[in-house]
Write a protein that binds this DNA or RNA. Structure first.
Lengths: 153, 153
DNA sequence: AACTATACTAGAATAATTCTAATTAATCTT
DNA sequence: AAGATTAATTAGAATTATTCTAGTATAGTT
């Protein structure tokens, strides 16, 4: 259940992907990267800060934002909407997939792209539309999930 | 091009839909409803205020928010994400449809549900998922749109 | 070691939204 | 129609998420 930061696992792989993307692998960037790439929880910046702080108590929220924005810019991370549509969450899964949001808990999870088949009828759309991506979010309930982790306003 | 509020058109129809939804049709609610139901621009609360103010100079931003939230609660309006993911837009089209966001202008427009066919493979999803809605947003460019209306940060 | 560029920090600023408490307007009872 | 009750509206404060600013630290280069 506890996630924590896996500082010593794959450190080299993470360092390399940062370098590959043209990002200097500073200590705080490594700590942030280690967390976001070892969770499937689609954390907010605040949540990233709370986790990273455990390993790296001096990290500032500004650095967390700077770093996450940098990762997004370099294509290592994707921004996704929070269920409340008022804050941003970060998704380290940059391969095509869909999202499911449990409306009772607010939890967002990835869905295999196999669960939906999308067939665009471009003739109906008109040639003036150049589509870069299609974002799909399913909303509903995931049954059998205990609601002990519910965090709602 | 100018939108404005069409106070005298459909006033009765609007009054009736408010009443139907159990909402007292006060003057400010009527003005807000008249605007949001006569535009396809998916306005933000701020944009609603600016328009409604023209007909109703004393309306407060708090009332705009109260009213829009009330309309959402009663199912007359839907919240949708702004392209910047930091503010909320309101969509008076409550029938099934998709959205297209022009990434150069930020403009959101409705798409006919015919342009995409979505076939969920529920067997792949698992019975514990109860889907209430599927939200689909296409992002890209709409060519041939002059960028004179671009409003970006 | 000195120089330069980059990264990081605390705290201020901004933007969107909600909250609070007071005021006004409507509706209800007689 | 007067008074009582309830609902709607307001201005402004508070809250939340995010970005900006300007100073400080760190790392990389000569």
């Amino acid at each position: 259940m506890e996630q924590g930061i896996i500082i010593n696992r794959n450190t080299k792989a993470i360092r390399d992907s940062l370098k590959n993307a043209g990002i200097q692998p500073s200590a705080s960037r490594m700590a942030i990267a280690s967390f976001v790439w070892n969770t499937d929880s689609h954390p907010t910046a605040e949540e990233v800060k709370i986790e990273v702080e455990k390993a790296f108590p001096t990290v500032s929220l500004a650095t967390v934002y700077n770093t996450l924005n940098l990762f997004v810019e370099k294509g290592l991370l994707k921004e996704v909407q929070d269920s409340n549509q008022r804050s941003v969450r970060y998704d380290c899964n940059t391969t095509p997939h869909f999202h499911f949001i449990d409306e009772a808990t607010g939890q967002m999870m990835d869905l295999d792209p196999e669960v939906l088949r999308i067939s665009p009828d471009l003739s109906k759309l008109g040639a003036e539309f150049k589509i870069r991506e299609i974002e799909v979010t399913l909303r509903g309930r995931k049954m059998g999930t205990p609601q002990d982790k519910v965090k709602q306003k």
